[in-house]
């Protein structure tokens, strides 16, 4: 990962979105999950883990604590679909579209 995570900027962060990543933070915290988004204000990462029972486990890693972000793998079609529909209300679409 080039440079400090919080200095990368939106275009760089977007390159990590939807990929499975391993985040090292603080002294000894490690979190793995599918990267839903990075808050452009705090550089915090939202990681999702889709459980077999249909539940989603969410980890928020604060940008100031991030030491390293490593890409583990690209999403398959099913995972990508779940990522794109997570937290989006059923009756509305993204503000962007």
């Amino acid at each position: 990962m080039p440079g400090d995570w919080h200095l990368l900027g939106p275009l760089e962060w977007t390159r990590y979105v939807n990929k499975e990543v391993k985040v090292t933070a603080g002294k000894d915290v490690e979190r793995c999950g599918w990267l839903l988004t990075v808050d452009p204000v705090s550089a915090s990462l939202v990681l999702l883990d889709f459980k077999a029972d249909g539940q989603t486990s969410v980890d928020l890693v604060m940008g100031h604590a991030v030491k390293e972000v490593q890409v583990l793998q690209e999403p398959d079609e099913k995972t990508l679909n779940r990522l794109q529909t997570s937290f989006v209300p059923v009756r509305s679409c993204s503000l962007d579209s």
């Binding site: 939106p10 275009l11 962060w13 977007t14 979105v17 839903l36 988004t37 990075v38 808050d39 452009p40 204000v41 915090s44 939202v46 969410v58 928020l60 937290f87 989006v88 209300p89 993204s94 503000l95 962007d96």
Partner: peptide
């Protein structure tokens, strides 16, 4: 890119 990322974060 900033707005897309922020919107998803706020929804979370």
């Amino acid at each position: 890119a900033r707005s897309v990322l922020r919107e998803k974060f706020l929804r979370c």
